[in-house]
């Protein structure tokens, strides 16, 4: 499996929260090489290992399939679109961005920006109420192809930077999806300690909703929430972040299972897989928060791929980090005991 090609194919699909079907379909197609796959009404993708053994514990591998974006709320008399946020939108970068509106057809638009001569203060950021999308159409033309509820996103497909870094929209969390797929590739034809279930969950960015129902249906004993987390940029303090190219970030937090964290750390050490520890003071802001308290409780931990510029169309990850995250997950699935 070519990790870069996989992540590229996943990241270019659309999957803004609540409307993930294109991304879900692509992920389901890829997952079906390894597992029996179903997609539910919400767009959640589920995979179950073909050789399901009732005597084994069940491990749920979760990554979310949705991405942040915007949603059309209104079309003005002049044909401009008003929008609201889907997820934690970064208002610093919206003005004059080219966007795609996913109407009855995909429509190109530009986020309006007020020209400098009218702008008293170019230091101020717009609020979402100030944002309009210019689709270059009259209201009448716009209404033929666009409706309230259509999603809007910034369409940056993958580009390569120096070293093994790539930049794209939606690497949060298609990188996690790719890492799970790579782990399954490594586990092909191998015995595993657990029954393996996979879910690619919808609506994480608007409140970890897909994982809530997915985890309920999974009857899992253990879960790994595979997401992205903050890699240090030049503007961050080192104590708040991981680093690119230093391997998966293993979560340690009061809301996570210390037992699973410890096993992950031990597996990484024994197999010389690079890793970093990510300490969080309470909840994690990932699907792990709801998975852990599903039904009578699931032992859950986060495994995160370091990523720079989260929630922007120029997110950056290292291909080697995705590979090493996949390796860590695969070894975790294979390994019988905590020690080695």
């Amino acid at each position: 499996m070519d990790i870069e090609k996989t992540i590229e194919a996943l990241a270019c699909e659309n999957g803004i929260s609540g409307d993930e079907f294109p991304a879900s379909a692509k992920a389901a197609e890829m997952l079906s090489q390894y597992l029996d796959v179903t997609v539910d009404d919400f767009g959640n993708v589920f995979g179950v290992s073909k050789a399901f053994d009732e005597s084994k514990e069940t491990l749920l591998l979760d990554a979310h399939i949705d991405e942040i974006g915007m949603i059309v709320t209104y079309i003005t008399d002049d044909g401009f679109l008003k929008v609201d946020k889907c997820g934690g939108l970064d208002m610093r970068l919206l003005l004059a961005q080219q966007v795609d509106v996913l109407g009855r057809e995909t429509v190109t638009g530009v986020v309006i920006s007020t020209p400098p001569h009218l702008e008293k203060d170019s230091k101020k950021l717009p609020e979402i109420e100030d944002i309009y999308i210019d689709v270059g159409m009259s209201k009448e033309s716009a209404e033929k192809v666009i409706s309230a509820g259509d999603r809007v996103y910034i369409n940056n497909s993958l580009i390569r930077l120096q070293n093994d870094y790539v930049s794209s929209k939606a690497l949060d969390d298609r990188a996690g999806v790719a890492a799970i797929l790579y782990a399954l590739e490594l586990l092909k034809d191998k015995q595993t300690k657990y029954n393996i279930k996979v879910q690619f969950s919808v609506q994480e960015e608007i409140g970890v909703r897909g994982a809530t129902i997915g985890a309920y249906k999974s009857d899992a004993d253990i879960a790994l929430a595979v997401d992205v987390s903050f890699a240090k940029t030049i503007d961050d303090k080192p104590d708040k972040c991981g680093e690119l190219s230093k391997g998966a970030m293993i979560g340690v937090a009061p809301s996570l299972s210390r037992e699973v964290s410890d096993k992950l750390i031990s597996v990484a050490k024994c197999n010389n897989i690079p890793y970093q520890i990510e300490v969080m003071g309470g909840n994690t802001g990932t699907d792990a928060d709801v998975i852990g308290i599903t039904k009578a409780g699931i032992k859950t931990c986060t495994v995160s791929i370091p990523l720079k510029y989260m929630h922007t169309p120029v997110e950056v990850v290292s291909i080697a980090d995705i590979e090493n995250t996949g390796k860590l997950i695969a070894k975790f699935c294979e390994t019988e005991e905590k020690s080695c």
Partner: peptide, 28 residues
């Protein structure tokens, strides 16, 4: 306007090196 530059892709120099302009995440 700096607000139309942040969060963008750029190319740098005669070799057209790919670059992106970012900073700490919105969460931070």
């Amino acid at each position: 306007d700096p607000r139309v530059v942040f969060g963008r892709r750029v190319t740098v120099g005669r070799n057209n090196v790919n670059g992106v302009i970012g900073s700490k995440a919105v969460h931070m």
